[in-house]
């Protein structure tokens, strides 16, 4: 008898706790992270192929291969000893650049970085990325509403996503 009461009490307690937890999570979810991360395109960063990432990020995957962007990857270029920090440099003569994206084709999540650029910013843009294995590295630039793409194959000695 005592045991039964105890059981019941436990269930009531459990229910109350989980209800309040859910309420708390919901409240914090609405108030905090959303405000902080409102603009982080989760779908794009969690996409597992280059096309999906581009579709999620830019709503389109139709790109023109173009020589208007030049692109340096690795030290020495096109080869990287350590995949955990591969230098990347993007240069372009295009005007009205709105957005730049860097993708690594064979990474678990290809999209490495996405930049929203204003007219105050001038290229070259340099940064370091991780590359898991020998792979194409792709730079996408959106300028005047058009997408331009360039890619470069990089060999990696030590994978950088482990």
């Amino acid at each position: 008898m005592v045991k039964e009461v105890d059981q019941h009490r436990r269930q009531v307690l459990k229910g109350a706790i989980s209800a309040s937890t859910i309420a708390l999570v919901a409240a914090s979810g609405l108030l905090l992270p959303q405000r902080l991360l409102a603009h982080w395109p989760k779908n794009a960063f969690n996409a597992e192929t280059v096309e999906d990432a581009l579709l999620a990020l830019l709503d389109e995957a139709e790109v023109a291969e173009d020589s208007a962007i030049s692109f340096k990857v690795g030290t020495p270029p096109s080869y990287a000893v350590n995949g955990a920090s591969v230098p990347v440099q993007i240069l372009s003569e295009l005007e009205n650049i709105e957005r730049i994206a860097i993708l690594v084709e064979k990474n678990p999540f290809p999209l490495a970085m996405s930049l929203d650029v204003t007219e105050a910013v001038k290229l070259p843009f340099k940064t370091m990325i991780k590359i898991r294995e020998d792979s194409n590295v792709i730079a996408i630039v959106r300028a005047d509403g058009k997408l331009y793409k360039t890619s470069r194959f990089v060999e990696v000695d030590i994978g950088g996503c482990g």
Binding site: H39, F45, N107, A112, M113, L115, D116, V117, T127, C161
Partner: peptide, 12 residues
Amino acid sequence: ILTMKCGTATAK
């Protein structure tokens, strides 16, 4: 002037 969104592939 600039917003950067990074995924996990940004180096340490």
